[in-house]
Structure formats: C-alpha cells, structure tokens
Amino acid sequence: MLDLRSLDIRQGSFRLRADFRVAPGAKVAVLGPSGAGKSTLLSVIAGFFPAQGGSVLWQGQPLEGLAPGRRPVAMLFQDGNLFPHLDIARNVALGLTPARRLTPAQRDRVAQALARVGLAGFGPRRPAELSGGQQSRAALARILVQERPLLLLDEPFAALGPALRAEMLDLVAALVEETGATLLMVSHAPEDARRIAGEIVLVEGGTAHPPAPARALLDNPPEALRRYLGD
C-alpha cells in the first residue's frame, strides 16, 4: 500500500499537495495539464526530489532518507532509461547486480526477461542499434528483473507512435498483472488511461486528487478534468 500523507511539494513558486492512498496492485494513471506537477510527484515518490512536508509511506514505513536505489521503486523516465555505453544484456543485468561477473542463474534470468519482452538474442547489442520500441522493451526487461513492488512510468513511451505506444502499454499491463506490482503512470492521453488504468489521479490547480475509478471519471468528467480534456 502506497500512502502519501499530507505531502507538500514546493519548487520556487510552484506548489503541489497530495494526500491519498493507492491500493496494492492498483493501476493508476496520473493525468493533468502540462506543468501541473505530474513528473514532480513521481520524482518525490522515487526519492529524487524531497518534499517540503508530509511523508511517503510504503507498507506503513516512511521512505524519507532512503536513496532512490534503496526504495521499493522501479522507474522509467521520458528518456535515458538505458546506459548507451553498455550492451542490452548488461543494462538488464544491472537491475539484478552491479557485479562484473554474473552467476549462471543471473544470466538465465536476464535471458528470460529479454525473451519475455520479445528481445531474445538482442543481449549483445548496444541501445543505439535498437529501434525506439525495442529500447522501450529492453527497459521493461530491466524493470522485470528489478522485481520492485512499485512501478513508476514518467511517459517513457511518449516518443513512440500510437500503435507502438498501445503495444507497450499492453506489455506493461501484462507485466504488472504477472508480478502484482502497483503501477503509477504519468500520461497526457485519456485513451492511455482508459486502456490500462483502473484509476486516475488528477493533478491540477496545485493538488493531486485522490484516485478515482477511470471509466466513471472519463465518462462523466468533473469541471477540473473537463477543462483539461477541453470539451
């Protein structure tokens, strides 16, 4: 259970408040206008940016003071999810261990993850040799081996075409289904939310609203969401 308790995030004149819980295994889309603070909210949960007040709790334990790598969080950014100087296998393996030599079991685990995202045999290649969609798959393979119970996506598929993006979202949905992880994904597109998210957190006007069921919200949007959707 992710618990954002009276979070108060400030950055210059920008301010964002959040106070809600996310149920275990929930798939939540974070929606809102550009500059509302969606990415900042995820950064605070992941530990890249400190909140001014309040607390982020996971299973009742506060996460403050834990380095990003020590949190139960796996995160994909808009870009830079792979080290360009390392091959795909190593990029995935870093989700398991920073050691130079992998055990046979770890090597198998990497190969399985690559096969699961449809990249069997791509291990020795560098990221630059892969297409955008393949790079996204490789990043997802690493998420898979990281086995973190909370997955944060900060629009990692924004640069992909609609069909490819849909394909990636389906893959993400399938992966969190398999692992039982909780998913928070920033999105601009209501159709993405409709596609895989059960709930929506609307970020708007300095507040991150508590999650509400996606379908109901989109079918009958309140004033704030209508402004954003523009109809």
Binding site: A46, A67, G69, G80, L86, L94, P98
Partner: peptide
C-alpha cells in the same frame, strides 16, 4: 545525463565508477 538512472539502480561507489563514470 545518466545519474538519475544510476541512482534508480542503486549504483554507488565502485559500481558507479565502473558502469557509469569510466565508460
């Protein structure tokens, strides 16, 4: 460029040096 990803993966000390800084 890559510090955030390294933080995310918990790469510190020698591991960070080996996988991020030196290359």
């Amino acid at each position: 460029d890559h510090g955030r990803l390294a933080d995310q993966l918990g790469l510190r000390g020698l591991a960070r040096l080996r996988w991020l800084v030196l290359p």
